[in-house]
Design a binder for these strands. Structure first.
Lengths: 109, 109
DNA sequence: GCGCACTACCGCGCTATGCGTAATAGTGTC
DNA sequence: GACACTATTACGCATAGCGCGGTAGTGCGC
């Protein structure tokens, strides 16, 4: 029941997806993912993913000092990120379809 | 485009699935997966997964000396394996649904 | 005014797992 | 006799999510 392994290679996609229409800061992305059903995703994973995607050139980043609390590091998806998102989404769908096929075939045979 | 990361935590499920109706040996499992669409799965991954599942008590194992070639180590899914398979399959479907939801929500918002 | 909770971020080290590579070994082909 | 295919195993690497702890700011209750 280790949901964590399922996240591998998919968290990138999820993070890009929740950022695609609206910039967000780490803690916010975390909340979006958790509200979206990924209850168990760890904060360190999200921050790490954001930094990784940023380093890879898929995200823009800017810090906004907050009046009420610590500063917030906002991230936004740039063109490269949108391309990556589209690719990852397709790869995910293809992969999901493949696995579904294997699961069904096993059941049928 | 690193499909390999998507496999994480799912290869167990796929292997159990292709073995669920018919015992098979490693190389055969590998072929079943590749024919099923998982072209890029490595042989070492499959053998490793089989050993891991066997150690975890989900598979039975018996060696069959072959007339034409090296011996074959057959694996079969036992009761624990079937339970595991059912659980994993459900976890997978739930997870896939969650991610689909996040992808759709991002697109809609 | 001090501790505590919540927001917000970061770094370190651990672990699981798929993969590359190489080794072993039997059989058939050219 | 070198090579290709089947079949398995072992060693070590890289990726990435996570647990844990630390830093820091704000506000609340006692």
């Amino acid at each position: 029941m280790d949901t964590s392994q399922l996240l591998k290679g998919v968290l990138d996609l999820a993070v890009l997806a929740v950022l695609r229409n609206e910039d967000g800061y780490g803690y916010d992305v975390l909340r979006r993912l958790r509200t979206g059903g990924m209850d168990e995703v760890g904060d360190a994973s999200v921050y790490g993913t954001l930094r990784r995607l940023y380093r890879a050139g898929y995200l823009t980043s800017y810090v906004v000092p907050s009046d009420e609390g610590p500063h917030r590091k906002y991230y936004g998806v740039n063109e490269a990120g949108r391309t990556k998102l589209a690719e990852s989404e397709e790869a995910w769908r293809a992969f999901a379809a493949t696995l579904d096929g294997i699961l069904r075939k096993g059941a049928a045979a």
